[in-house]
Amino acid sequence: MRPTPRSLLRILVPVKRCVDYAVKIRVNAQQTGVETNVKHSMNPFDEIAVEEAVRLRERLKDAVKGITAVTIGPSKAQETLRTALAMGADDAVHVETPEAAIVEPLAVAKLLRAVMDKKGPYDLVILGKQAIDDDAGQTGQMLAGLLGCAQATFASKLDVDVGAGTADVTREIDGGLEQVRVKLPAIVTADLRLNEPRYASLPNIMKAKKKPLEKLKPEDLGVDITPRLQMLKVTEPPKRVGGQKVDNVDELIAKLKKAGVLPGAA
């Protein structure tokens, strides 16, 4: 990743089309995965990533040279790119994979690196911290590893100093918050508290269809997306055994003590 001149920032935002968070997921009858013939939308953490890129441009004005949204997935994933364009991205790249293909985070990271080689250089990649479907939370870190550049994960605040070529990131860590300074180019992954994503307004939805969208295939990028892991089986979580109602607090405490879940109780 070669940095562009210090005064101009190019941002890449990878987004993923996931089953909508409001959909109640069901495992398919063959236990090979979940039912995917349901409503999909942009991974919520990716919405936050797009929003942050757009806000950076609002803050830094002309210092942001462009925001590119990229997705890897079947043809329907284009909807997700259109959403990103409607939110404020300038152009989009769609790496089209077969409908049934499972693309693991490592393959995604390699494809992203290839896209950056082809379309870049980019100075900042903002990803969501994890996708709500596979819950891996790996892509951003793997990409940073492949590129050999800095990373700041679980960001809840992002300040970029374009002149100095650095970004100050507040990270959500177990005990509280941690502030780090990374050198650009860098990878940032967005946490829930980073911002509240905007609506893609109706005029912007209509403008989005006129923005450029480039289609690529993994073969064009020379990346093998064969999974490294073999998925054996997908099952429903064990059903919770029905609870019971108690009549009063004493009974509740007695039951909790008996179950051994009350602190201090034997």
Binding site: S41, Q78, E79, R82, T83, A86, Y199, A200, S201, L202, I205, M206, A208, K209
Partner: peptide
């Protein structure tokens, strides 16, 4: 259409 889908999503979310 994709555009109508986008419009519906926006209105639903709103």
């Amino acid at each position: 259409s994709d555009e109508q889908q986008g419009i519906q999503d926006l209105a639903r979310r709103f």
